[in-house]
Design a protein around this nucleic acid. Sequence first.
DNA 1: CAATTTTATGTACGCGCGTACATTTTCTCA
DNA 2: TGAGAAAATGTACGCGCGTACATAAAATTG
Lengths: 347, 347
Amino acid sequence: MIIASRKEVAQLAGVSEATVSRVLNGVGPIREETRQRVMEAAERLGYTPNALAQSFARRRSGNLGVVMPYLPKARIFSAYYFSEILSGIGSKALEGKYDLLMLFREPGGTMDYLNLFRTQKVDACIILGAKDEEGERAAIRQLSEGRHPYCLINQHFEGESFHVMDADHVEGSYEAVKHLIEQGFRRIAFLNGPPEYSNSRDRMSGYCRALEEAGIELDESLLFEGNFSRKSGFAAAEKVAARLKGIDAVFAANDRMAIGLQQGLRSMGVPEEEMPAFVGYDDSDAAELGAPPLTSVRVPFYELGCLAAEHVLGMLEQTPSSAVSRIPLHRKLPTRLVIRASSLKRK
Amino acid sequence: MIIASRKEVAQLAGVSEATVSRVLNGVGPIREETRQRVMEAAERLGYTPNALAQSFARRRSGNLGVVMPYLPKARIFSAYYFSEILSGIGSKALEGKYDLLMLFREPGGTMDYLNLFRTQKVDACIILGAKDEEGERAAIRQLSEGRHPYCLINQHFEGESFHVMDADHVEGSYEAVKHLIEQGFRRIAFLNGPPEYSNSRDRMSGYCRALEEAGIELDESLLFEGNFSRKSGFAAAEKVAARLKGIDAVFAANDRMAIGLQQGLRSMGVPEEEMPAFVGYDDSDAAELGAPPLTSVRVPFYELGCLAAEHVLGMLEQTPSSAVSRIPLHRKLPTRLVIRASSLKRK
DNA sequence: CAATTTTATGTACGCGCGTACATTTTCTCA
DNA sequence: TGAGAAAATGTACGCGCGTACATAAAATTG
């Protein structure tokens, strides 16, 4: 059976194709009797407008693009982080009758975001896991200059005015470290993420501020770096273990690294009573599963996704002349420290 | 600045539009000099073919659809399960130059899968979380009859011959329960998922077989049901606790429920030494984070995603006359029991 | 009831590209 | 060098729909 198109419907209903279009789109005045006839004909033929042709004619794809970061080994969705954000975006896309188009960065070079719009692949897009590199900046700048509806999540760029939906990682980290200090720990190691991510740098700020406020001098030898994977946390265990006697507590930039580090230390034979206190970040599912349960900083990822999606879809409805989309959005949602056993002072 | 189209490129290069098309698509014989001129013109104008128009003209969207299940509260991506599968699909889609289109089931009725193809929204699609209900069956049957490239993951339908990429949950469950029996446990409770999912029924089969083989009679009062969420595991704790004296071990249909149940029991004040042994399912990240680490059945979700994607993309390349796509695929990948502390007999 | 407005429908075209077919140019070989 | 084959390019149209504009039908008014 061949798929019926507008033509057949028009024929069967005894009207012109334009009338069919109008009935189906609810455009213009239509006599009730005509509407009935058309609807019936469409029904009989099982007609559904071709979405591709509609998109082409309307010059709108109906897609909301989501740019995913490239992570080695491709298990990109594995992180709690992305899962939550995507769920948020997805729920709003559904509401707005948009489809979600997932776009994967290629391992090598920078992605040409502007091209997504020029080729009409998407009507709007949300960028996850952007890095602070010149190529990236340039690519995003093009979107801004072209007034395209886009939004970054959880990454901001110093000196640029981009649309960003962020969380307050300076404050979150500050609270985390302050908590450790209040617990009586003073030699607090920091397992941070790569500095190309603004949230890594933000965490560093918060970490430093808390130390400073407590009159603790920054000890560079207590700074470690991972890539947010559990494996990298595990790997960091070796370096941490080497100076374990000088470490009271560890603040990690996400839960996975914190847990990896814990596991690493244990696998190296560090006894439980010598384990430092721990605070993770993200408050992922894993945090409350840990032994001991992991104190962590809750980040409203789901909400970040919702708000970013609402923002870009909102821009889409504005007239080009409207000024709203020209004012770049920069919202910072608050984080919240969730205290569990891992960070409490043992007596 | 307006976006250049093929026409401008042709004009600038002094050739016809058709030639521009040919050069860009590498079709037909082209004089090298002409190719240069066209490429240069395209470069100068920053020309990129309009993907929407291309799709329309080619009558192929370039999209690989992924149907996501509707889960209440919308945190659909949260499960390890989907993360892994999506990563697998995503990696193959990327290889095949396809984009991933995420499609969300609406809460209520059945989704009209056939419509995805009729409207040309997708060229192929992969269906996750299908339930064994008549509407669902009918919808999938339409795809089969229309010889559309589709594939179900982790769900099969008795009596139908659909394209399915599955894992062997009968065997996986059998191994899990056998292991518990070998550890000396005999009164083994089973916290299963909803029976609308074939994998739930498969697990039940494996569970029964293992018991039978060991000469243990099935005790219906040891069967519990959750919905795969941690919360449902937590909720089941109440019922389980009521007859805790008669339970040596628990086999749960996924790790989240296992962990939820453990947490529930603890929160009800069940002392550690009275906790039953545990075996989970999926071998998610959470399994090795638990206290004690959770024995679990590893399911190759990532591979399921890869294979399903390869399958549908493969069907796409076949000529309609080719017979391969008519033979419904039904592959079952093996699972593997990963033994950790939670299931070991305490002396 | 004719002149006008309002409502309903039809006609015609463009969206940007792929591609079958027609035409022109270049090459080959006698 | 000229005829025929091969290579290169151009011409023309369709894909299915939205929609501006033209037209016809119905309603309104004086």
